[in-house]
Design a binder for these strands. Structure first.
Lengths: 137, 137
DNA sequence: ATGTATCTCATACTAAAGTACCAAAGTGAT
DNA sequence: ATCACTTTGGTACTTTAGTATGAGATACAT
């Protein structure tokens, strides 16, 4: 947030400087009116695009992994891995193969995930995890 | 697409007109240099924001239900309902209650959904449906 | 009318998922 | 060193999920 304020402050200063500069450049006759107007137009067009892009970034960022919620839920690293595999549509046996452990281990992890997400089925766990913005995509 | 080209053409024409206008306004002395530059800056800033917004819209619009793919997959109305219930995390028994039919019926629908989505498990079916942009959310 | 597809439901079965314990070994912090 | 947590794995069991097959009822199009 402090960073944003600083950038906007510097931007405002740069804009004022640019305006003054172009004004004196015109009076002194170094540049033609067409060039100055074109320059101003390009600069502000770019600024407009950049600012809109910044807001868009903030909007879409809300659709990525919510690290804070992940912490409050308290899933362990391994449990989280299993959750992601589950959401990808794999069976316990397949997950066991992917993570090089036994199916029993996966079942234990799965049960723990259910407890922490308050779910009764894996589909429900996936749904809840999605609502909590915990899953990639 | 034709619409976009037309809009951009008109926009280009408007910009050229604006530049000429401001040039002659300055020469005739009706407006000060500050006003003209400010006006140009604002106009192009707005144009930059608008264009960026248009692209952003196209990006986010691709995240809604893809009716065409739904048709090609050929899910029946009832099968699609069952798929959505599945993705919401409900068990076969719960889905049966929601749709006022027996669990057997749900099992039949579920199996048909698996065939049409080429899935072996409900979690996989959900994942594939999501990739095909068939599910709401 | 007759065929095609959908929706419904049943039985009988296999496979997978999930629960409930228990327990050993490793990790990390105080 | 001790405690808490994680990771691993096991057995035994219950519950869902999923498959295969058959079949009646409805609706819709040719």
């Amino acid at each position: 947030m402090k960073k944003t304020v600083l950038i906007f402050g510097m931007l405002a200063f740069a804009i004022l400087a640019l305006l003054q500069l172009s004004k004196y450049a015109l009076i002194s006759g170094d540049l033609t009116i067409e060039l100055i107007i074109s320059g101003i137009a390009i600069v502000f067009f770019v600024i407009g695009v950049a600012i809109q892009k910044r807001f868009r970034k903030q909007e879409t960022e809300s659709k990525e992994i919510d690290q804070k919620q992940l912490d409050t839920i308290g899933l362990s690293k391994r449990e989280y891995e299993v959750l992601i595999e589950m959401a990808s549509g794999y069976s316990n046996k397949e997950i066991a193969t992917h993570l090089f452990v036994s199916e029993s281990t996966i079942k234990t992890h799965v049960s723990n995930v259910f407890l922490k997400l308050d779910a009764k089925r894996r589909t429900q766990a996936i749904q809840k995890a999605k609502e909590l913005q915990i899953l990639p995509i």
